[in-house]
């Protein structure tokens, strides 16, 4: 990973004057006895990358699933800065509204491509499906937009009609990414997008993510237990432990001057 840090330019943290793009307040979620997420607030500003780190089982994926409206918490509210939804707590949307909102405004990349892709359909088809759900009914347009989106994800264009199950792990992640950005989402959620890939492939996928983020100023929430990945990508970092946020701040602060004991352990173990 060390080589990677040198090749990717660090950029200055953005000023956070704008209205938040995403805001969650007082989120709690349990599974039976297990309190997976406890009273968590999240704020993400437009064009910013929020990194979420934490050990296994700390509630990162659970939180992300709620951001993707796949799951509803016991308590808490969720707002996205969308033209027609500004006032609405998105957890009050009905099933159909959720599905439409998710298709149009939220992109997600899972660690496990089986969760994000229809493995038996073509790669371009996987991207096109997103556009079809949103109501696009023009074949030529679907075709060219799927192609553009795959190209932006640096997916090899000669393989756009191959099925994900015939592709490498890195390429599968690029299909997920193409699908996620096809409709210019308000927020792009990434749950361990490069975990499980070879280190060299991981670096290439991160490069793509970085480039997309800089070109399009996509608002991202990136979950990883790999501090190297977070350090490469994130403007701000949130550290989770046992369902709670124990520390958050600008990436540089967190990495250079961690305050919480747990964060100190994490950072020192890594460096």
């Amino acid at each position: 990973m060390a080589a990677l840090f040198n090749t990717v330019p660090r950029h200055e943290p953005r000023l956070m004057l704008a209205e938040p793009m995403l805001s969650m307040r007082g989120i709690s979620k349990s599974f039976g006895e297990v309190k997976a997420v406890i009273d968590v607030d999240v704020t993400v500003y437009p064009g910013e990358v929020l990194g979420i780190v934490g050990e296994s089982g700390s509630g990162k994926s659970t939180l992300l699933r709620m951001m993707n409206l796949e799951d509803t918490p016991e308590a808490g509210s969720y707002h996205l800065s969308l033209p027609d939804q500004e006032e609405r707590n998105l957890f009050t949307l009905d099933r159909f509204e959720r599905r439409m909102l998710r298709a149009r405004h939220i992109g997600i990349v899972y660690q496990n491509p089986h969760l994000g892709l229809l493995m038996g359909h073509t790669s371009s088809g996987n991207v096109a499906e997103r556009l079809l759900i949103a109501g696009n009914r023009n074949f030529a347009d679907l075709r060219s937009r799927a192609r553009e989106s795959l190209q932006a994800s640096e997916f090899p264009l000669e393989r756009i009609d191959a099925r994900p199950r015939e592709l490498s792990g890195g390429m599968q992640q690029r299909v997920q990414l193409a699908k996620a950005i096809a409709l210019e989402p308000a927020v792009l959620l990434l749950d361990e997008p490069t975990t499980g890939l070879d280190v060299s492939v991981q670096a290439l996928v991160l490069d793509t993510l970085k480039r997309l983020q800089q070109e399009r100023a996509i608002t991202m929430v990136l979950v990883s237990h790999d501090l190297g990945v977070i350090r490469t990508m994130a403007d701000r970092v949130m550290v989770m432990r046992r369902g709670r946020v124990v520390e958050q701040g600008l990436a540089d602060q967190i990495f250079q001057d961690p305050q919480h004991e747990y964060t100190q352990q994490l950072v020192h173990a890594k460096l």
Binding site: L118, L132, I133, R137
Partner: peptide, 18 residues
């Protein structure tokens, strides 16, 4: 129930591609 017919369209899309 969800009027979730994206995959039916997808089948037609892929027939046209192929």
């Amino acid at each position: 129930g969800d009027a979730d017919y994206g995959q039916l369209w997808l089948v037609l899309y892929e027939q046209l591609v192929k």
